[in-house]
Design a protein around this nucleic acid. Sequence first.
DNA 1: TATTATAGTGACCATACGGTCACTTGTCAA
DNA 2: TTGACAAGTGACCGTATGGTCACTATAATA
Lengths: 196, 196
Amino acid sequence: MENTTKEKILDAALVSFAENGYKGTNLRDLAAGMGLSKSALYKHYESKEDIWNALLDRMEAYYVARFGSPEKTPPAPKSCDELYAMTMRMLDFTMHDKRVILTRRLLLTEQFRDERARHFATLHFLCGTKEIYAKIFAEMMDNGILKKDDPDLLAFAYTAPITSLIHYCDREPEKEPEIMQQIEAFVTHFIGTYRA
Amino acid sequence: MENTTKEKILDAALVSFAENGYKGTNLRDLAAGMGLSKSALYKHYESKEDIWNALLDRMEAYYVARFGSPEKTPPAPKSCDELYAMTMRMLDFTMHDKRVILTRRLLLTEQFRDERARHFATLHFLCGTKEIYAKIFAEMMDNGILKKDDPDLLAFAYTAPITSLIHYCDREPEKEPEIMQQIEAFVTHFIGTYRA
DNA sequence: TATTATAGTGACCATACGGTCACTTGTCAA
DNA sequence: TTGACAAGTGACCGTATGGTCACTATAATA
């Protein structure tokens, strides 16, 4: 994460693409926002689309670095209380980290315009999170902490509602307290249902 | 649903806004697509934004007409098999009706640009569906078909994963068979878990 | 010191787009 | 028949925007 102009452009682009959309992003304002003139951008990238692609490259690289290899999966909780705590900890990060929030927003709004965004959205919103929890659940089932069941199906039933509430919170952040309660209630109920 | 030019413009606008986004929609092409010149649009609407607002008005009216009053809630199934069948029937419509698909796409991509779209998205993707099933579940619990539990929480746990798979299918329609299997597996598992 | 590469500037270009306007056409009522 | 109104056209306008280019400044290097 160097602090080069080239990187800073991507930082600014993430904000602008997420907040105004790809088409709504104008390179003059984007450059001005970082104290540059528009032409300076062209010293680092060939075109608007080139910036977009570089941004997606970086997002994918970041995702792989964070969740890419199997050993990056967080260690399986040793109790249901630990599962609860871990879920809440991950949630707190996911819901409040500015970069992550902007990434979600960008993927949501651009998923139908760009092929890579489309696939990345599925990974980010559905399959990625599900797989992480599938591994965790499988191990917890082996350890007799959760009832034996299909870990993949359970992970999906667990993460999909949480993700949908995260989207809700992205849309209407002023409702966060209420949404957090809903998440807690859901997580508690879920763990109660499948605890061994 | 009259066939006036004014209505036809909204039909075309739904397609274009959904496929190209609000900013990506250009009035010349939109008009040309229906064999009109751009200026003709201005005989019916004051501006691009006016078309957008009229479209949202119509969407909301349509939603209210369909789900607005309590008595519009479908009758509660008399068995778990009936619940399964009803879910699949509603799903088939939701996933294949062109208007509904376009509406979802439009709400997803424009939710952060427009206040009304934002609220409508929450209703459409989360609260609306949840409430319908909450009523159904409550009645089924009263009738001893489902285990007694919090109907609201259960409805959320039921509809949110399904909705997220619908979004998945919107993004990657070529995966529909696979996704349908996932939905069936989830619904079966869910009903199995909460059947009385 | 002279040279060269890098980063940045501002003026400029072409184009696309939302919106306006004067004008035409067709229909219906007085 | 005529007048009025609604619907539609095409030319035109202003502006925003992505992109290019000749030029400058700076700093490292030979």
